[in-house]
Write a protein that binds this DNA or RNA. Structure first.
Length: 947
RNA sequence: GCCAGAGUGGCGGAAUUGGCAGACGCGCUGGAUUCAAAAUCCAGUGCCCGCAAGGGCGUGUGGGUUCGAGUCCCACCUCUGGUACCA
């Protein structure tokens, strides 16, 4: 029964590859290396999703293709296994997260192996492996041991940090504190989502609308001591070094925008009476612009120093440390209530909901505008963020949308200082009157000596003047914030940090790093994973043997925060190169030989954070001499999302159908009928029940009812999730791989289609029957496959296929490569004689995409060894060409006929033959030839006009 | 609102980058094979007019450049994804 049976041949070849170590990668590459990396998965309990194999198949094709072209390929796989779901599961079931994690990893491994990817499984790792996170902790020690030298723009050992003499004079504790403040890993108070009812700190994604995801309890933002990583120090390099990467412009832009560099000025506003302003500013002319903040002025950051004359009030963030100082007694209760309310809101809530209405409260205090000596009121409002710039702004309502909206709401003055000019539309008067906001560039007005100057000139001029007066200076700001690196979680890497305790067991504030030789710091055993009710991490529940450490005669308590999930995924690409090294995170020679990653493929959801964090760590490791490349990932490709099968949805209100055009969403997001306002019910309809009318789908038996036709994201709740196990069972792994590649371009979002899967399976069946005698009782070649020379036509098809498939694989255009292979099969199944040499070449071309079937056929064609390292077929250019070609003849750009001409026919000959064509003559008689266009090998176009 | 990407047959998608629009697959129609079905094989399949030869229209919409536009330019519409007061 020699039918194509993937259930039999796929496990057979997977076993063959495994027992022969076919894809074992040498420690060091040969002549040419290629490092191809997939974004490793989080091993969730749900198992592999069809989205995973999309990218994995694409990279596997690259690897198999390039191995055959002689490259030494590194293609590893691992698991990003720390994370919230395992811990949630632990809280619910009280099983240790490691147990469920390992179970999930085993399941993922089984599923990945079932798809025949050519990973070097000897290198597999999980971020939760103790041998792995030992080095994650080690890298943290490097970050802890590094400060950023702004002059050299690089990270240097903390021992090289220059200590000011006055600090040295204060003793060791002062020196240590000075160092601690400058390390790349440092401690700071940051706001966390504290949920008193659950007795635990929640991650941002666990907070929905200010309530806990579980149980809907109120969540409060409270400051908690946190570990931070000084990624902002690297902002400039993270931005600049994008230039040399082979990433899509879209991703580069996302990263650039995330870093969000802006230039402007910091300006100090005097906090005092108008009478004292003169002497204060005179002082400033002598002392200059101070680097330290004082309490007699408010420092703001602006990108529009040119609008300083238009600043009519100021706003500070509710968390600004001047709030108590600036609040007058008359305003105190109002201010306190406002700030309290703001503390309950997350950043997101402040910007969402409530129609983004601006809120704020007056402090009762005033500051003096440095350019004109005018006092202006200081407000508190949550539209100003504490974490950006200086947490305080000068408000220029005439030229900033947000300030304008706020000023209108609270009746604050609006003074225009930029004239949009006559060229602008009719609203110029409204703008100058302060009735409308204008954010563009123009000409300065109401701006003292700057009047008449263009915006672009005023900016530097005012900044320069402020600098000479000691009132301001040019400044650069980034939206990028330092990376909040600690989590109040159990299931993450413990920090290798000890907090010194005094004799009473209280922290002294001094910290020390765990010695590198004492790594790893393993996670302790906990009896249970229930929250303990304090705003402190679960590791606070650890047994004393773990929690308390004595070292050099001093007592310490371990750090109880853990690292975020990002930590382990920041550097796994390095460990794959040398996964078992117990002396170093990576051997230097191997690192130089394999880095950088030549191709990195994964979902676009990691476009910003994961890639930015990895790049940051890599740069620190580079500065400290542990890696040799500036950037980790040379080429990046983001695969598109796979949606569920297309669904048709009709809507019904009671018994009556309602057309899609008559439906809208009410303010609660419920679908209603526009006319009646009644809720409608959505009904899934079969494809056979709908028909296309114009651009839309309608019910076949009621064409006035339009229905919705779209593919949705796969989700459990929608019930449209496709399970790879089922596809492999019903169609085979090669069919799944092939289908996912045939669906469309790798980067595109595309809907799943079960009949598409059976289409490619059908192709694989045809491939089988092209070579195997499916009517015989045992597996043998079909009679048509013979040891003969290909005809010139067969050679033409073969060599064109080799050329096209090779080019398509180089471009990662897998859908068209597969189409070429289909054309080959369509041609050769019609051939009575199928030369064995052509079949051999074809099998090699097919092998990167459908490796199991290809190996089986390769064996059948008489080769005892795997084809994995067979040389890739080479095409002969001469054989791809035919001697004659068909060329269209156009009249006025419309195709009116075709002629067959020699392929190498010259321009003149081509025109001559075209003009000799009877059909053309017929069409142009009685008309004047205005022009002829002849493109050899392409077309002839005759332009005529009447007469 | 802003940013990015995309709109091509009944469906997924091709088109060597300005040169025969719709490759390849799905679906559909007809035929062969079969007692019948499945499977397989062959042929056809953008829309409209026409018995046919042939003609007209056609790549989201409207304009433009060109001998020639899916491809380039301008304006607009729709969808998808991302993002959210960063001064």
């Amino acid at each position: 029964m020699p039918r194509y049976n993937p259930a039999e041949i796929e496990p057979k070849w997977q076993q063959f590859w495994e027992s022969n170590h076919t894809f074992k990668t040498p420690e060091l590459p040969g002549a040419e290396k290629l490092y191809v990396l997939d974004m490793f998965p989080y091993p969730s309990g749900a198992g592999l999703h069809v989205g995973h194999p999309e990218g994995y198949t694409a990279t596997d094709i690259v690897c198999r293709f390039e191995r055959m072209r002689g490259k030494t390929v590194l293609h590893p796989m691992g698991f990003d296994a720390f994370g919230l779901p395992a811990e949630e599961h632990a809280i619910k079931t009280n099983t240790p997260p490691r147990v469920s994690t390992e179970k999930n990893i085993a399941e993922f491994t089984r599923q990945l192996k079932m798809l025949g990817f050519s990973y070097d499984w000897d290198r597999v790792l999980a971020t939760t492996d103790v041998d792995y996170f030992r080095w994650t902790q080690w890298i943290f020690l490097v970050l802890f041991d590094t400060w950023f030298d702004p002059d050299q723009q690089r990270g240097r050992p903390i021992a090289e940090l220059p200590i000011p003499t006055e600090i040295t004079a204060q003793g060791d504790a002062a020196v240590n504190a000075y160092r601690d403040r400058r390390r790349l890993a440092y401690q700071d108070d940051a706001l966390v989502n504290w949920c008193p009812a659950l007795g635990t700190v929640l991650a941002n994604e666990e907070v929905i609308d200010g309530k806990s995801e579980r149980g809907s309890h109120p969540v409060q933002r409270i400051p908690l001591r946190q570990w931070m990583l000084r990624i902002t120090a690297y902002a400039e390099r993270l931005m600049r070094d994008l230039d040399d990467l082979d990433w899509s412009p879209g991703i580069k832009k996302l990263q650039t925008d995330w870093i969000g560099r802006s230039t402007g000025a910091e300006v100090d506003f005097f906090l005092g009476s108008q009478a004292d302003f003169a002497s204060w500013s005179k002082n400033r002319q002598v002392s200059g612009f101070p680097s330290q903040l004082g309490d007699d002025f408010l420092r703001i950051y602006t990108t529009r120093p040119d609008t300083l004359y238009g600043a009519t009030y100021m706003v500070i963030a509710p968390e600004h440390k001047f709030v108590p100082q600036l609040t007058q007694d008359s305003q105190r209760s109002e201010v306190e209530a406002y700030c309290q309310a703001a503390s309950f809101k997350s950043d997101r809530e402040r910007t969402e909901g409530e129609a983004k209405k601006k809120t704020g409260v007056f402090t009762g205090s005033y500051a003096i505008n440095p350019v004109n000596g005018e006092p202006i009121p200081i407000w508190i409002a949550d539209y100003v963020l504490a974490s950006y710039g200086t947490g305080a702004i000068m408000a220029v309502p005439a030229h900033d949308d947000r300030d304008f909206e706020f000023a209108q709401q609270f009746g604050l003055p609006i003074v225009a200082v930029v004239d949009p000019g006559a060229s602008a539309d009719s609203s110029r008067d409204a703008i100058l009157n302060g009735d409308e906001c204008f954010v563009g560039a123009g000409q300065a007005v109401n701006s003292g000596s700057y009047n008449g100057m263009a915006t672009a000139e005023v900016k530097p001029a005012i900044t320069a003047k402020l600098a000479t007066d000691g009132l301001g200076q040019e400044a650069v700001n980034y939206k990028l914030r330092d990376w909040l690196f600690s989590r109040q979680r159990f299931w993450g890497e413990p920090f290798p940090i000890l907090h010194e305790l005094d004799d009473q067991g209280n922290p002294t504030g001094a910290i020390r790093a765990v010695d590198a030789s004492d790594l790893p710091v393993n996670l302790p055993h906990l009896d249970d994973y229930q929250p303990h009710g304090r705003p402190e991490p679960p590791l606070g529940k650890s047994p004393d043997e773990w929690l308390y450490v004595e070292k050099d005669g001093k007592k310490y308590r371990r750090e109880t925060n853990t690292m975020p999930q990002w930590a382990g995924s920041c550097w796994y690409y390095l460990r794959f190169i040398d996964p078992k090294n117990d002396q170093a995170l990576i051997d230097a020679e191997k690192e130089r030989a394999w880095m950088p990653v030549d191709l990195y493929v994964g979902g676009a959801e990691h476009a910003v954070l994961h890639l930015l964090y990895s790049r940051f760590w890599h740069k620190v490791l580079y500065d400290r001499g542990f890696v040799s490349t500036k950037e980790p990932f040379q080429k990046l490709v983001n695969q598109g999302m796979i949606l569920g099968e297309v669904e048709y949805t009709a809507y019904r209100c009671g018994e009556a159908w309602v057309s899609l055009v008559d439906i809208t969403r009410n303010e609660n997001g419920i679908l209603i009928e526009k006319s009646s306002g009644k809720a409608v019910e959505s009904v899934a309809v079969e494809e056979s029940e709908v028909t296309k009318q114009g651009d839309n789908f309608v019910l076949a038996d009621n064409p006035s009812i339009r229905v919705d036709s779209r593919a949705h994201k796969m989700s459990k709740s929608r019930g449209n999730v496709v399970n790879p196990d089922e596809i492999v069972r019903d169609y085979g792994a090669d069919a799944l791989r092939l289908y996912e590649m045939f669906m469309g371009p790798l980067e595109a979002t595309k809907p799943w289609s079960m009949s598409g899967v059976s289409g490619v399976r059908n192709f694989l069946d045809r491939v089988w029957r092209m070579i195997v005698d499916y009517r015989a009782d045992d597996i043998r070649l079909v009679d048509a496959v013979q040891e003969s020379e290909p005809t010139s036509e067969q050679n033409q098809v073969l060599h064109r296929t080799i050329a096209a498939v090779t080019r398509d694989l180089e471009n990662m255009s897998y859908n068209t490569a597969i189409a070429r292979l289909m054309e080959f099969v369509n041609f050769f199944t019609k051939q009575e004689v199928r030369p064995r040499v052509a079949m051999r070449q074809f099998v090699l071309l097919l092998s990167p995409m459908a490796p199991h079937l290809a190996e089986e056929l390769w064996q059948l064609l008489g080769h005892p060894n795997s084809l994995a390292y067979e040389p890739w077929p080479v095409f002969d250019e001469a054989l791809t060409k035919s001697s004659e070609i068909e060329v269209p003849i156009q009249v006025n750009g419309k195709v009116r006929g075709r002629i067959t001409v020699p392929a190498d026919c010259s321009k003149e000959q081509l025109l001559e033959m075209a003009m000799a064509d009877a059909r053309l003559q017929e069409l142009i008689t009685g008309k004047t030839i205005v022009k002829t266009i002849v493109v050899p090998g392409r077309l002839v176009n005759v332009v005529v006009k009447l007469q």
